[in-house]
């Protein structure tokens, strides 16, 4: 077996409070290079919390367990360092950063990652070329370059912009939190194509979704069901189909 890209063991995390609230109640999950995992689960079960804890959001405190990424514990690492190391989080609700040009933001972020990998930074001209190519693949209009980051973007446009960022950053592991929610049928196809195009034997994707449909386009190797802060069941793609028809109740019964 190869060494895992991500290894979460018995992770407990939540809000420091007061009062303290435990949201993740002992989660274990292992992702190897080349794999696609999917996490499904009811609203409020802790999916976004898991993704944000992995990325280092300051709202959450880890009370137990570990998150090891490419052989190194992420706990105690700043969010920006995690990102430069190759962890990417596609947000369920991307925020707007008014006045900051999307292209400039992408270039600064992309170059921070390149520096970390010992690659040469791209000047604005070379970066434009790269960006134009990625935007073409995602069928994004050029005007999204000069607009503020997510500023006034529609829900679907924001999601597409997340995948554009993923493309620029070329992460080792991408956690995509409900990237499919809010996309129209055509956009879902384009975005899925974009995700698939970025897949390589040395990277991996963790999809968080409510819908089986995305998994038709981006085929998962493993499907996990997260409920009430715990992974209740793991299986292959058929588990997603089962959830689609039966819901979640049968799992707790």
């Amino acid at each position: 077996m190869t060494t895992p890209l991500l290894q979460i063991t018995n992770l407990r995390a939540g809000l420091a409070g007061p009062p303290p609230v435990e949201i993740l109640k002992g989660i274990s999950l292992t992702i190897h290079p080349g794999e696609v995992h999917a996490i499904m689960g009811p609203n409020g079960s802790g999916k976004s919390t898991l993704s944000k804890v992995a990325a280092g959001h300051p709202d959450y405190t880890v009370t137990g367990g570990d998150v090891v990424f490419m052989g190194e514990s992420l706990l105690g690492m700043e969010p920006d360092a995690r990102a430069r190391k190759g962890l990417f989080l596609g947000f369920q609700y991307p925020v707007e950063i008014p006045g900051v040009s999307n292209a400039e933001f992408l270039r600064i972020a992309g170059n921070a990652r390149r520096r970390e990998r010992g690659e040469e930074e791209l000047d604005p001209f070379d970066f434009q070329e790269l960006l134009d190519q990625h935007m073409k693949n995602l069928d994004m209009d050029a005007r999204f370059k000069e607009r503020g980051v997510n500023e006034g973007f529609s829900g679907g446009e924001k999601k597409r912009n997340e995948i554009l960022q993923m493309a620029v950053l070329d992460p080792a592991l991408a956690i995509l939190d409900e990237t499919d929610s809010g996309l129209d049928v055509d956009a879902l196809k384009i975005v899925s194509k974009g995700i698939n195009a970025l897949r390589r034997p040395d990277n991996a994707v963790l999809l968080i979704t409510h819908y089986q449909r995305l998994l038709d386009y981006v085929q998962p190797d493993f499907v996990h069901i997260l409920m009430n802060g715990k992974i209740l069941k793991s299986g292959d793609k058929s588990l997603a189909l089962e959830v689609e028809t039966r819901g979640y109740d049968w799992l707790v019964a």
Binding site: D59, I97, G99
Partner: peptide, 29 residues
């Protein structure tokens, strides 16, 4: 907002640079 900062940081941009990006964005006009 902490969420704006986290968004930029989660793209590999340091906290200080994130703050300055947000403020410069605020002053862009």
């Amino acid at each position: 907002s902490e969420d704006q900062l986290f968004y930029l940081e989660s793209r590999g941009i340091s906290r200080e640079e994130s703050v300055s990006m947000i403020l410069n964005g605020f002053c862009r006009e």
